[in-house]
Amino acid sequence: MLSLCAPDDRDRLLKMVTQFHEEEELPTTDEDRLSGIDALFSGDVQAAAWLIGPKSSPVGYIIVSFGFCMAIGGREALIDEVWIRPSVRGRGMGSQCLVAILKELTKMDVRRANLDVAADNPKAKALYDKLGFTTHERYQRMSRRL
C-alpha cells in the first residue's frame, strides 16, 4: 500500500501536493511546493514521502519529517501531510496508511510520532483518536515562518 518516493516520482507527488494545498486553501505557491519537493529529494533534510496505493497510479501520499527530542530519548517524527484523493476517501485507506507508516517508523527507531489536525476536521480527528494519537496535555504547538 505504501511505496517510498524517489526523485522520478517528483511530478506525480507535486500534482497531489498541489491538490491538497488547494483543497485546504493553504497559502503556498507553486514555488514553495517545488522547493519543498526538491529539498525532500536533495538528501539535505531528514524527511521522506510515500505514495499511497499502486506506485503507477497512487491515490495519495504521506510526508514525514524527522527530528530529535531529549525528553523521549531519541528520534521523533512529524507526519506532515497525509492526503487521499477525494473520490476514494471513506474506504479505510487513511487508516491503513497510518497503521503502515507507524509500523515503518517503529522499525526506524522513532520513539514518538506527531501530527497536526485542523480543529474543524472532526473526521480526521476521530481517525487519529482511533489510532491512539492524543492531544498533548501540556504543550501547544507554535510556529514562526522564517
Results as ranks from 00 to 15, higher is better:
N121E: 02
L105S: 00
P58K: 09
P27Y: 05
M93D: 06
M142K: 03
F133S: 10
K125F: 12
E104F: 01
G67H: 05
C97Y: 05
T134R: 09
S35N: 13
A119D: 13
D120F: 12
P7V: 13
R75M: 02
Q19C: 12
A100F: 00
S56V: 15
K107Y: 01
A49I: 00
G67D: 04
Q46L: 06
G36M: 13
R33V: 04
G43H: 06
V99Y: 04
D80C: 02
A100S: 14
R12S: 15
R145T: 08
A118H: 01
D30C: 11
I79P: 01
D129C: 09
T106Q: 14
H136K: 12
A6S: 15
E22F: 03
R33M: 12
E76A: 01
V110A: 10
L26F: 14
R112T: 10
M93E: 07
M108D: 05
W83K: 03
Y128F: 12
S143F: 11
A49Q: 02
E24C: 04
D116K: 04
V64Q: 00
S3A: 15
G43T: 03
A47E: 10
E31H: 09
V17E: 11
S3R: 15
L26T: 02
F68V: 07
K103H: 13
P122F: 13
L14H: 11
A71Q: 10
K55T: 07
D32G: 12
S3F: 12
P58L: 04
L14Q: 13
S42Y: 10
E31R: 15
A126T: 11
L105R: 04
F133M: 11
